[in-house]
Each structure stands twice: as structure tokens, then as C-alpha cells.
Design a protein around this nucleic acid. Structure first.
Lengths: 351, 351
DNA sequence: GTTAGCACTCGTACGTGGGGAGTGCTAACA
DNA sequence: TGTTAGCACTCCCCACGTACGAGTGCTAAC
């Protein structure tokens, strides 16, 4: 948020008209268009003078002499910070979200793909949604399932209702009976704990209590720690990537391709979402403000959702700098609310 | 496969030269190009005469008078059936596949996404890979995991090592002890069976043996049947969708968008892969041969992989009709072999 | 049967010129 | 002093005509 002293109300309104018009049409905006549209009752000549001032302030620019004006990054930034007013979701949008909630929300992981879809459909931009990071998440239940004589399956249910599987290979896996006992033991000791609470002391105690199976317990404990600690199992969903093609900004094949490439690759998705997901509220980063080279011609609208007041997951949409920020922010915040609502419902259900 | 009597060796070679050149360049092929390239030692005039004949046979066509020749769908069909010789994977390609095998292959589901990636990377076309359909797959292990007082988690491991989870909501869920007993009971009765072997008689017997928990057992049995019967849980992976943008055939935004749309949507992916996946070997469908309107301007190269000699899953790539069929078929068959190899390794490991 | 030659077709690239949208500047006006 | 009409100027865009080149089909000669 920054303040521009030279900006009187008329300039403010003209700037607003330029930006909204350009967001809508993707065409440079001329003084006559503004004269007709902004309803200030002043002539295009006066507006030309004002536009010249706005250009001096660095809020708008020209592609070439005698072209209309185009918002600059600084212009967009000012618009996002000081001009635009967020709106609520329309009845239609809200209804569409409600439908999303009705089915398959018990497990957090089902919700994510659906959230990505809703985000893309309602906003018209490609969306990215990450599963919650598990770092601060607690273990709810552990189950060991026999597979064959050399392997077993570890099923981990967290308090966010996410279910994770991992096959564990051993020189010789215990039988069903032993696994059942081990499962019970693991649950007694670990259920309700988060990764931070699993310490050396606890592990020593567990091994002591169940020493006969230490050779099985050790690798299992290691893997459990890995599972809830590493982000490797955190999936990231995208939707509506094709929406990019609707924007003239990405008419160039190579630009479109770069975006598609990035949105297909896990690593670059993480890079886009950024680490850590600590920031709260909705963040808008415009053009050069983005650290990633790939995004320097784009804008990113991003929000974190939290579980148990711990910021854990991230939802975002990507678009051209000429993005409909009002639409983007309102859809994102609407969906954010819904996610929180669902998560809280899950939490309540879990206790 | 069809036979064209009028096609002597020279015409055959000219047709081959036209098709391979067009596949490479996407430009209509002229008689002089062929004269220089095909090495038959005949002049362009002679080739023009032959081309005229080939056009009469419907194997090639012209975009307009005085343009070069372009293969027709019939031409491509003849090429695929009778002309092209498949090649083996190059050392580089084979190595790339080997790398894919090294990690994360124990569970079939990990392999699928990797397979899709490899397929797209090696072929240069968008790829689609489906998980194995479970219809003929047998149950390996069932485990009931307590969640809370109103819900439990059903974990189903199949003999293809696919693991599926489903939350089951009940008015009142049994405790840990009961679930452990129920799990044991379910495994005793169902392990090793496929969906076809689960009949009324068996269910009656199970309910009789465990009548006290019939109200829990009934919904569980229903869900197990659903899980292995329905295709709802079969995931389909895509990769390299962006590759489409490399082809002039999809320069039109709307065409590209239609493909992106289709490859993002589960339903249309199933429609593309087609049902059932019974056919063996590699199938090529060209242009109008495809039932789907969307694919009438494309070619689809598809293969099924099987588990235990039952055709169960499907891998495919999509491209323009001017597809590099040699490349496509060789990559697809190379990857198919690898999938089979991995699956057999899993099977051996499972016994 | 093959080929050189030629007239013809058609798409593409290129230069040109007009129209239109837009600007900045100036001078007149309230 | 701020506003506005008018004007010259810039520059993009499009339509048009032309030249060129790639390619064909046909004919006649080998």
C-alpha cells in the first residue's frame, strides 16, 4: 500500500477507468473512451492532459507514440492496494461452491482436486491447490497391513483425515498376528502426537516395551517420521490450465508452453506456491514482483488455508498481469472460506 | 490391413517418401522433393504421373490445384498397416525407461504417473495412462481402521498391489477390537477372490457366521463390491499435454483448447481410451476412424497391458494424423514391455 | 515408358497507400 | 487558471496489387 500525493480524485477515477477497461478489453485505452465511460463530464483533451500526468507518475504507459495507455505494474499494484473493492460471490457462484461441498468432503484429499476445479471454473484462470503440509499435523491412527513375506503396508491417518500409504520392505515381515499387536502398540504410543512430539526418549521407550520386534519397529518409526515430516507426499492439484489460451498475452506458443510446462511439473508448482506458506490473507504478486522468472509476465493471487490455526496449505490462481483482480480475489476468498468451513467440520467430526 | 493391386514397387516407394516427408515437415510434398529424396533415379515428371495415380487410388490428396500432395487417411492407414517398420528403442530411450523402473515400482499406482511421463517425454506426444481396471482383480487383503465413533476406514489391497481407501460412515462404528475381528473374518472369507466369485451364497454365509455385526458387515460388503467393481476409483494420468502446441495442426486456439479440455476431464479421458480395454497389441486409429468427434482430426495410438493374462489397463498417446507412427509405436511397445515386466515382478513378489 | 519443356494455378511475401485511432500542442474561451 | 476545440502529426492496421516461387498437368520428343 502506498500513497501518491499528486493523485486527486479526478486522476484517481481516470486511472481506475483505464485499468478496468484494459482488464476487460486487453486493448490500449484512449482518451475518448475514458471521456465517454468515466462520466466525469470532461472532454477528451482534458483527459489527455491528466493521462500525461499519470504517465509521469509511472502508473500508466504507452506501447508507442500515439497509442492509447496501458497500466504499468505500479499502476496495477496501486489498483490492487488502493482502488479495487472486493465483492462477495454471486448467488450462482455460491451455489456452485455449495455443490462442491456436498459430496466427498470427509477426507481432505478428495476436497483438494474439487477445490482446484471450482477455483478454475469460477475464476476463469488456471488454479493450483496444495494438500495441507503435514509438519504440524498429528497422527490419528496407524495400521500395519500384511502384504507378503517380505513386505507390509503402513497406513497412516492424520487428524486432518488425510490417509497415506507406504509399502515397507523388510528381509522378513512379521505375520498378521504380530502386525496387529504392533499396530496396537504404535497407536497407544503415538496417536495424538505430532512430529515434534516424537523424540528420542519416546522412541527408546517404545523399543524397550517392544524389544522383541525392534528390527521391525525401527524402520517403521523412521518411515512414519518421514511420512509426516517430508513434503514429498504432499500432492499439488491443478485445474483449468487450458484457460491460459484464452488470453492474448499468451498467444505466443512458447509463452503458453512455458506455463503448461510449469503447471505440469511438481517441483515448479512448489516453486510457484513458494515456501513457507506462512502468510495469511490473500496475497497478490504482480509481474516483476514474482521471484520466478517464469512468472514475471504474470500475476499470482494466492492464499493459505490453515488447520487448527496453523497455516498449512495453499491455493492460488495464475493469470496475465491484466487479471480481473476483483474476480480473482473474491473467488479465492470465497473458496478459502469454504475450505475453512469444511476443515472445521472435519475437526469437529474428529473429536 | 488391405491390399492395393495397382500399387507397384515404385508407387509404393513414392508413397512412402511422401508420407515420411509430410510427417516430418507438415508441408505438402512436391514431385521434385521426392525425385531428390527417394533415390529411384527418375525425374520429377515421372513422379508427377505416379502421384496422379496415387491420388486416383485415394492414398494422397491436394489442398488445392498446384499444391503438393498430402497423405489421406487411407494413405496413413496403408502406411501403418503395410509400410512402416517398427524399430526398437534407442539406447538412450531404453536407459531413460530403466531409470523409471528403479524407483517406486512396488505399488502399481506409483508406476502409472511415471509411465505417463516417460511416454510423453519419449514420444513427444500427450500421453494417457489408466490404472488397471479392477474387475478381474482379486482381493489380497482387507483392513478396517477405526476413525471416530461414526466412521471407519476401509483399506483394500489387491493382488496388483493397488491400495484403495474408502471412508465408511455408520450410525455407530464398532470399536478397535471388533474391527480387528471383522477384518480377520473378511480376510478369511474374501482374500484371493475376485468380484465374480463374491456371490449371494458367500455373502449369506458370511453374515450367518458373523451375524452379530450384520449391520456393519452389510454396508462394508457393498462398498468392497463397489470398490473392485466400479471404475470410479480407477485413476487416469496424463502427461505432456503441452506437446500439442508444438504441432501446426493445433495452431488454432480452439482446437488446442478442445484437446486440453478433453485431457483434463476424467470422463472424456475414459471416452478416449474406450471400453472395454480388451484388444491386445497396439492399435492405431486414424482420423475419422475414431468414434469421438474430438478425435476425428487426430490419431490415437493405444495399447492394453494385462495382469495375469487379463487385459486390464490402457496406455495411449494422441497426436495429429501426421503423427510419427514409427516413433509412437516403438515407444508405446517399449513401455508396454516395461510395464509387463514390472507387473510380473510384482506378481512374483506377491507369491 | 520416360522426360524436358511450358503454360497455368495458387499461395505467400512484400511494398504501398489510405483510413482510423490516438496523441501533443496551441490558442481561444469561461 | 483550468478547460476545450482544433489541428498537425504519428503510427498501427488492413486492403490491394504485384511479383515470385513452388507445384501441377499436358504435350511432344526421345
Amino acid at each position: 500500500m502506498f500513497f501518491i500525493p499528486a493523485l486527486n480524485l479526478r486522476k484517481f477515477k481516470i486511472l481506475e477507468a483505464i485499468i478496468t477497461d484494459y482488464i476487460e478489453t486487453a486493448e490500449p485505452v484512449g482518451s475518448r473512451t475514458i471521456a465517454k465511460k468515466c462520466g466525469l463530464g470532461i472532454s477528451s483533451a482534458t483527459i489527455r492532459n491528466e493521462m500525461s500526468d499519470l504517465e509521469d507518475l509511472g502508473l500508466i504507459g504507452q506501447l508507442h507514440t500515439s497509442s492509447g495507455r496501458v497500466p504499468s505494474e505500479k499502476g496495477y499494484r496501486f489498483y490492487v492496494d488502493s482502488m479495487m473493492q472486493s465483492r462477495s460471490l454471486t448467488a450462482e457462484e455460491a451455489l456452485s461452491l455449495q455443490r462442491m461441498l456436498i459430496e466427498n468432503i470427509y477426507q481432505a484429499e478428495y476436497m483438494m482436486q474439487e477445490t482446484a476445479k471450482a477455483l478454475a471454473r469460477l475464476s476463469g484462470y488456471p488454479s493450483i491447490v496444495s494438500e495441507p503440509f503435514l509438519k504440524k499435523t498429528a497422527i490419528k491412527h496407524i495400521q500395519l497391513v500384511p502384504l507378503d513375506e517380505k513386505s507390509l503396508l503402513l497406513v497412516l491417518v492424520t487428524d486432518t483425515k488425510t490417509v497415506k500409504n507406504q509399502v515397507i520392505n523388510l528381509p522378513s515381515a512379521p505375520g498378521y498376528e504380530t502386525l496387529t499387536q504392533l499396530s496396537a502398540h504404535l497407536n497407544r504410543c503415538l496417536a495424538g502426537l505430532s512430529i515434534r512430539e516424537i523424540n528420542r526418549e519416546l522412541i527408546d521407550k517404545m523399543l524397550k516395551d517392544f524389544g522383541a520386534h525392534a528390527h521391525v519397529l525401527m524402520p517403521i518409526l523412521g518411515i512414519i517420521a518421514d511420512m509426516i515430516q517430508s513434503e514429498d507426499d504432499v500432492r499439488v492439484f491443478t485445474s483449468g490450465v487450458k484457460n491460459i489460451l484464452a488470453f492474448p498475452e499468451f498467444a505466443d506458443k512458447n509463452k503458453a508452453k512455458a506455463i503448461f510446462q510449469a503447471l505440469e511439473d511438481r517441483e515448479s508448482l512448489f516453486a510457484i506456491l513458494g515456501q513457507p506458506f506462512e502468510a495469511s490473507g490473500i496475497q497478490v504478486t504482480i509481474g516483476e514482483e514474482n521471484n520466478l522468472e517464469l512468472l514475471k509476465a504474470c500475476s499470482l493471487v494466492k492464499a493459505s488455508y490453515s488447520i487448527d490455526n496453523q497455516s498449512n496449505g495453499c491455493i492460488a490462481i495464475i493469470g496475465p498481469m491484466r487479471m480481473d483482480y476483483v474476480q480473482a480475489v473474491s473467488v479465492l476468498s470465497g473458496i478459502l472460506q469454504n475450505i475453512q468451513y469444511v476443515i472445521e467440520a472435519l475437526e469437529r467430526g474428529a473429536r
